[in-house]
Amino acid sequence: MVPVTPEEMAQAVRRAGLSLNPGQLADLVLAWQQLATLSARIPRDRPLVDDMTVVFRLPPPAMPAPPPQPVGKTAKKAAKPVPAKVARKKKAPVPRKPLPPAKAKKKARR
């Protein structure tokens, strides 16, 4: 049993904000002695850099939302396959070549 003086216990009880009658105080002394005996079994000589068991784990980051799916008429249009002819005619716009510096100057004067 872990020894505890009545004064030490009275101080601890005051600090805990408890108001105990003599019977309840005797119960607390008994419970504390049993708990302290158990606690004394726990090893304390751990390396300082040992793992921290008491950790706060953040929830995993939210996954990026999938791009919105088209709805209604737009969805039908998007889902419809493009006819081969149209596909061939529709060429991607070719970006204009920038003018050589001399021609660009003339154009600017005009």
């Binding site: 805990a16 408890l18 607390l28 504390w32």
Partner: peptide, 8 residues
């Protein structure tokens, strides 16, 4: 008896 010891 089971819980009050937790205060200490």
């Amino acid at each position: 008896l089971r819980v009050m010891g937790g205060a200490l």
